[in-house]
Design a protein around this nucleic acid. Structure first.
Lengths: 153, 153
DNA sequence: TTGAATTGCGCAATAG
DNA sequence: CCTATTGCGCAATTCA
């Protein structure tokens, strides 16, 4: 990461432009396809103002071309930065959620323990009651209607 | 998303190669930056075997060059795919964790409710005991040692 | 030294 | 028309 070269922004030397050009034969180039065969509405026809009409490949030389390119390059850079940022945020979110999860899980553990303690106390007490009451007849006393919850998921 | 063009893989027409070549001036290029300022060993020698020595810019024509390029292009594509996949996985993970979180939260709610019910029963019972016992002297009986939990968060 | 993997960058097509 | 995205290739670096 971090280059040392490429620190010069601002149009200066965008070497990368693809110094390729290698086979710079001698064909084509700057032959602005100004083709306009039959030409705009010869008879009565509308040129369909904002419709198809491929736009000439833009002369690489063109001032306007360079301007568009530069703007696009900027947009691209921006977009990519965002994308990267978003990815990092998402990763961050994962970490946060993981932590939150652990916390919740711990809390559940605690609550469960508390619950079990209370339930035990309850049962114990119920037994004591049963022992004291000594119900007549049926030896199978049933003092515990098990009231509320019991089988939660 | 989804393009219809660019479905042709396999080296075929990599148009994009940068048909630029535009200003195929005649400057620079192939001036191998063999710069060696003051330079390596003036006196004793040794070309410092594995050190600088920028390898010639590789003739774009070269067969080997094209091969390297193609391999790299492949690697790049692969790498980017992975990167993208990883991002998606991370996003997916976020969703899963969110769900898990909701589940846990619901469970906590449930447990809390159960706990509170049991605690209430306890208190009620304690009061009943107090009423029955009818402690002598002090009217403020204290049969409830509040045992276990009590001040959770 | 070498080859694959990453990364920054620009181009062009195209989506919005 | 303009910006935002996206796939692609190049080249410089980093990793192994």
């Amino acid at each position: 990461m971090s280059r040392l070269s490429q620190a010069k922004i601002t149009t200066a030397d965008h070497n990368g432009v693809s110094v390729i050009q290698s086979q710079a034969h001698a064909s084509s180039l700057q032959q602005v396809p100004q083709l306009i065969p039959a030409h705009p509405n010869a008879s009565g026809g509308k040129a369909v103002p904002s419709s198809n009409m491929k736009k000439p490949p833009a002369d690489k030389e063109s001032e306007e071309y360079r301007q568009r390119r530069e703007r696009n390059n900027l947009a691209v850079k921006k977009s990519r930065m965002r994308s990267k940022q978003k990815a990092m945020d998402t990763q961050q979110r994962v970490n946060e959620l993981k932590e939150e999860n652990e916390r919740l899980e711990a809390k559940i553990k605690l609550l469960s323990k508390e619950l079990s303690v209370l339930k035990d106390l309850f049962l114990e007490h119920a037994h004591n009651l049963a022992d004291n009451v000594q119900p007549p007849g049926t030896e199978g006393a049933s003092p515990a209607p098990n009231s509320t919850a019991a089988g939660g998921q």
